[in-house]
Amino acid sequence: MNGVHRPSSWHRRRRDALAGFAFTAPAMLHTLVFMLVPAGAALYFSFTEWDMISPARWAGLRNYREILFDSDLYPDFWKSVRVTALYALLSVPASLVTGFVQAYLIDLVRRGQAFYRLVFYLPVITAEAAVAAIWKWLYDPQFGLINAGLDVLGVAGPDWLGTPGVVIPALALIAAWQSGTAMLIFLAGLKGIPRTYYEASEVDGANRWQQLGRITLPLLRPTTFYLVVTGVIAALQVFGIVYVLFGGNAGPERSGLSYVLHLYLFGYRNGAMGAASAMSVLLFVTILLVTAAQFRLVPRQYEG
């Protein structure tokens, strides 16, 4: 019986494999052409001096050495690293907290969950340029809504986007406002916690805060871990919002000079695409290391 069926099953398997390749081909082609090849090219160009319009000249490790150690040629490289690190440190927790609070509150209401989900998600799908324009107005030192509100409370608001020390917290606030993705994923996580746990704890006399601290948060740990990892990766690559808010000037005393903005300016404005490629390789390695460290150090599962 086996002997009779083997050829046809082998045929079928081969046909399945072919179909599988055919279906994944577009995605694989996309990854190859638009991700792997450019990444490989960036790695190659990181060892050259290249302005995009003349032939690249081999430079060995010079770009890396100068970027990391020559503060005359790249006076703001380490500043861009500090700015980006501080941004990640502030914006990731801020957006996790607002995302969680939004999800928790939505989960509590009985009616109109879809409406609140939509409203809290809107900032994420709003065009970056529009977001920047809105916040520029909100933060305006003379006529901005935020400072007008603080004025009513008798507090003199800072010049949000004009004071170097305030710029990154101001950007983190925008990130917190745009936490719709974290909200959606937290909401899915909340729905995944069996109601029976809450019912059982209620029988034992637990109040809402105890339920939050002992059931909800621990069981959301895998969700939180995922959001921390993806949030840090995204924060280290922040570009759009700073570019639209500040342009190439990067804000007062370049306090909004994110790593990728710095890289972009060197590649496209200063004609140093070789050095910009080296910076992108450094960023890639950094993200890899940070992510690996998170996998080792941050608790991923709830261990009773």
Binding site: D76, N249, R254, L265, R269, N270
Partner: peptide, 12 residues
């Protein structure tokens, strides 16, 4: 190199 001198060094 003037753009780089202008934007990176003089501006600073």
């Amino acid at each position: 190199e003037w753009i780089q001198i202008n934007d990176e060094y003089l501006a600073k």
